[in-house]
């Protein structure tokens, strides 16, 4: 337990640990990262990133894996974390749900860090309805043959909260969807905007990261670098087109909580961070890519 993060509750340790933070009175953040283990297990990628961009922190080797839970009239889980956290994820869910059933499990896309506990959670909550994006085929090979198929623009009413399925700007896996929640301005842009942190910076909201030396400028440089790995197709894109696309997206959505899958949740100073993100994407497209052909 970190004594300066008053509401933090952590389940497990090492490679399986899951932290729980409360974002609003009805939205919870379930966060996996490995803290001190990152130096050994994450392969020194931070040092590699810092070689590419010396502004980056060579000791920031830890990556966040996020899930979110809405407790409304209906309960709505966003992604599952990965199989390595199946026990701790179930413990954390049990704690937050406190005897309530889980109504919906929404999968951003069918990769293990996002959907790898689907079977375990379904066994624990057999009444839940699984949700994935529609307009595809061959769902069996993804293990999604009985999922509810959503279309862009569909809305899932939870009670006070309305989840709107939106078309992602940045995709890797084909079955990727984003969502925007209207009451809170909560945007889940999944793999977009991946940042990193040091072992002494775990489980923090972005405003709490600033208390330990982080900044929007650091965020911009990190995302410009990590995006080259997360979305390597950016090297084939046009920087101004991508930048304009991002800016138009920010005009369209009133984002008040920015909650990707691999980023510290941003709940304050949104304009500052969204401006940094817009710039980061332009930088990512223009960067040099080291590809082994």
């Amino acid at each position: 337990m970190k004594d300066n993060l008053m509401d933090l509750k952590v389940y497990g340790d090492g490679l399986s640990r899951v932290g729980v933070r409360q974002i609003t009175d009805k939205i919870f953040w379930l966060c996996h990262c490995i803290g001190e283990c990152a130096a050994d297990y994450n392969g020194g990628f931070a040092a590699d990133f810092a070689r590419v961009n010396p502004i980056l922190d060579p000791d920031a080797s830890d990556i966040i894996y996020n899930s979110f839970l809405f407790l409304d009239e209906k309960t709505f889980l966003v992604d599952t974390l990965s199989p390595g956290q199946h026990k701790t994820m179930l413990e954390a869910l049990d704690f937050i749900l406190d005897g309530r059933k889980l109504d919906y499990m929404w999968l951003s896309h069918a990769e293990l860090p996002h959907a790898g506990n689907t079977a375990a959670i379904r066994r624990a909550y057999p009444e839940l309805q699984l949700m994935t994006i529609g307009d595809n085929d061959h769902y069996e090979v993804q293990g999604l043959e009985d999922a509810i198929l959503l279309d862009y623009g569909d809305k899932v009413e939870l009670g006070e909260h309305t989840i709107e399925i939106i078309k992602p700007l940045f995709v890797d896996h084909a079955l990727t969807q984003w969502f925007y929640e209207h009451k809170t301005g909560f945007l889940c842009p999944v793999d977009w905007a991946l940042n990193v942190h040091r072992a002494d910076q775990c489980f923090r909201f972005m405003d709490e990261m600033e208390q330990v030396g982080y900044s929007a400028e650091r965020f911009m440089h990190e995302v410009s670098t990590t995006s080259r790995f997360v979305f390597p197709w950016l090297r084939w894109a046009d920087a101004e087109q991508i930048g304009a696309m991002v800016d138009q997206f920010f005009e369209e959505y009133d984002i008040r909580i920015f909650a990707p899958s691999h980023t510290n949740v941003i709940r304050t100073d949104l304009p500052k961070y969204m401006s940094a993100l817009s710039q980061a994407m332009r930088m990512a497209v223009k960067s040099e890519y080291e590809i082994v052909f």
Partner: peptide, 13 residues
């Protein structure tokens, strides 16, 4: 691939 993180991108077993 050396680019994956096994504790998150491989089955737990």
């Amino acid at each position: 691939s050396s680019a994956i993180l096994p504790y998150c991108e491989l089955p737990w077993w």
